[in-house]
Simulated scan of single mutants.
Amino acid sequence: MTTLNRYMPITGHDCNIPSLLIDTQAPIDVLHDAAAYRIRAVTQLLENFAICDDAPKGAVVLQELSLVCSILLRDGCDLIDVTTRRMQEQVLQ
């Protein structure tokens, strides 16, 4: 198994010079908490949007909502990926 680089750019932001990085050597519980926070935020946003009858549901609003959700979910998935790799490395040691 290959060792992770210390800092991994998030995959949701395509840029030649990454500015948002994940510290792959951070404690696993910290990585997990960061992922869970983002996923819970998206869940809460979608649940609130789904039950709100007064919210505008135009194409632009839905497009912006989709973008916000995809950014948070991608970050969460990146963090879960790092956490999974770290846990697999620990099992193999």
Rank of each mutant, 00 (worst) to 15 (best):
L92S: 15
D29K: 07
V42N: 03
V68Y: 06
I71W: 09
Q93P: 13
Q44E: 12
Q90W: 04
V30Y: 11
S66V: 00
C52F: 08
A50M: 06
R38M: 09
L72S: 11
A34P: 02
Y37P: 02
Y37G: 02
K57H: 11
K57M: 09
D78R: 00
C15E: 13
T2M: 10
A34T: 03
D29A: 10
L31A: 06
V91D: 15
I28R: 07
N48D: 15
Q25M: 11
I80P: 00
R40K: 14
P9Y: 00
T2I: 08
A50L: 04
L79A: 07
P18I: 00
D23H: 00
D53L: 05
A41R: 04
R6H: 09
H13G: 00
V68T: 11
I51C: 11
L67V: 15
V60A: 07
A50E: 15
C69A: 14
K57R: 15
C52R: 12
N48S: 06
S70E: 10
D81E: 05
L79E: 04
S66C: 01
S19G: 10
D53Q: 11
L67E: 08
A26M: 07
I51G: 06
A26H: 07
L62T: 13
L45E: 11
L21Y: 05
T43K: 15
P18T: 00
A50Q: 13
D23Y: 01
N48G: 13
M8S: 10
I39V: 08
R74Q: 03
Y37M: 06
P27I: 02
Q88P: 04
A35M: 08
A59R: 05
L4F: 08
L4W: 06
V61R: 12
M8I: 13
L21T: 01
N5T: 03
P9E: 01
Q90M: 07
K57L: 05
D23G: 05
L79P: 05
L46H: 07
R40A: 10
R74F: 03
P18C: 00
A41F: 14
M8E: 10
I10F: 08
D14E: 06
V61Y: 02
Y7M: 01
A50N: 07
R74D: 07
P56H: 14
H13A: 12
L46D: 12
D53R: 09
P27T: 06
V68G: 02
L72A: 10
Q93I: 03
T2A: 07
